[in-house]
């Protein structure tokens, strides 16, 4: 059973996505902002991070950089989620150290495929 850290400030997004992932068999924990996300990820309890990029306190880009900078979270898969769908967002996310990238609205099957690929399940 994979453990997922969902870093998302929007309550409805959190509710929706966490419920859908749980239904698919994931264990989901949630962080409400970038700083909390980094702190929780450092515990080493998660297999993958789903990171919203527009976050309060520190945003997803910065949180990702911090995770990549710390030895204990250097290799954890991070999927960036962004609602902007700007043409440069994908490159920006990869540059920041994300493992993959997806846009909102989340297509659950597509997201699952990406997650499973990174988790080596597929």
């Amino acid at each position: 059973m994979s453990r997922v850290l969902l870093v998302e400030d929007n309550e409805m997004n959190r509710d929706m996505l966490s419920r859908r992932l749980r239904k698919k068999g994931f264990e989901v924990d949630m962080a409400l902002d970038g700083a909390q996300g980094v702190e929780m990820a450092r515990s080493g309890a998660y297999d993958i991070v789903l990171m919203d990029m527009s976050l309060p306190v520190i945003d997803g880009w910065e949180a990702t950089r911090q995770l990549r900078a710390a030895p204990e979270t250097q290799t954890i898969p991070i999927i960036a989620l962004t609602a902007h769908a700007m043409s440069g967002d994908r490159d920006k996310a990869m540059d920041a150290g994300c493992s993959d990238y997806d846009t909102k609205p989340v297509e659950i099957d597509r997201l699952l495929l990406k997650m499973n690929t990174l988790l080596g399940v597929a």
Binding site: N13, M16, L17, H84, K104, P105, V106
Partner: peptide, 16 residues
């Protein structure tokens, strides 16, 4: 962003 947020919610909950 402001407009897509509710869209995402609608999509998400409908799919759910």
């Amino acid at each position: 962003h402001d407009m897509r947020t509710p869209v995402n919610h609608i999509v998400g909950y409908c799919e759910l």
